[in-house]
């Protein structure tokens, strides 16, 4: 018997179990019979709708703002790009609570941008639906920018030279050559952004609050249910897990080691 190989198998199995056991626990506790009733509740449906709307809007923000940013980041190498990229990627590694406090200090009623915004236009962001989108976009955008930038960097610029020589202007080159050819990266970015936004908890709670029907997203509803109705919490957790698994299956072909 090969000792190192056995040791490796044991260690790998332990690691795999570390991830599998909680999932099995969730499944074991699932109140399967009561699922329709639990998930049919108006508050759950509200949270579900809010979550998907906020995450969808975050993906929209990523496309509108993140795409130009990724194009600029991929268009060359400079110190400024490195600085900007670091700032954009910060939310990936930042503790979500810090992100929430940072968002409040910027867009809160007394915040750097929030205060003048309220004085000048009477617009308040925190504790509104807009705030759930801002928090979701803040956490999700980096994944989109990262995926699209790496797609653009791997993209062979000779295709653009060819399109150019055939008479295509910059907009046509982007829409008909670059975008279709990097579409796998864009789709990956959109899915990752959506999932990160869907799971957002801490920053949303701090910045958008936890108002039933307004800012209580699925994770917040889940957290609250844990204190009042654990069976509901498990049901919601399974719902979120199901969504995540679905996304992983969609991404499967793009993960390393896929057949």
């Amino acid at each position: 018997m090969n000792l190192p190989r056995t040791a490796l198998a044991v260690a790998a199995s332990a690691a795999a179990l570390l991830f599998a056991v909680p999932l099995v626990g969730l499944l074991a506790h699932a109140p399967w019979g009561e699922f329709p009733a639990l998930l049919g509740d108006a508050r759950v449906r509200n949270a579900l709708a809010l979550s998907f709307a906020a995450s969808g809007a975050a993906v929209g923000v990523a496309i509108v703002l993140g795409m130009p940013l990724a194009l600029w980041l991929a268009s060359g190498r400079s110190a400024l790009r490195t600085v900007v990229r670091t700032i954009v990627l910060l939310p990936v590694v930042l503790p979500p609570i810090v992100a929430g406090i940072a968002l409040l200090s910027a867009f809160g009623r007394n915040g750097l941008v929030g205060a003048p915004l309220e004085q000048a236009f009477g617009v308040t962001i925190p504790f509104t639906r807009v705030a759930t989108v801002v928090a979701a976009a803040y956490m999700g955008l980096p994944f989109f920018v990262l995926a699209v930038e790496s797609g653009l960097r791997a993209f062979d610029a000779r295709w653009l030279d060819m399109a150019r020589s055939l008479g295509a202007g910059p907009i046509r080159r982007f829409a008909y050559v670059t975008l279709p050819m990097i579409f796998p990266s864009v789709a990956t970015g959109m899915l990752l952004c959506f999932m990160r936004a869907l799971g957002e908890y801490c920053a949303t709670q701090l910045f958008a609050g936890n108002l039933e029907g307004v800012t209580r997203t699925l994770p917040l509803a889940c957290g609250l249910a844990m204190e009042t109705d654990p069976r509901l919490a498990v049901a919601l957790s399974l719902l979120l897990s199901g969504t995540s698994v679905a996304v992983l299956l969609l991404l499967k072909r793009r993960l390393p080691g896929a057949p």
Binding site: R158, R164, S165, G167
Partner: peptide, 11 residues
Amino acid sequence: VSEDRRVAWLP
């Protein structure tokens, strides 16, 4: 610019 030249480039 290239798109206004009407030069066929076959690399």
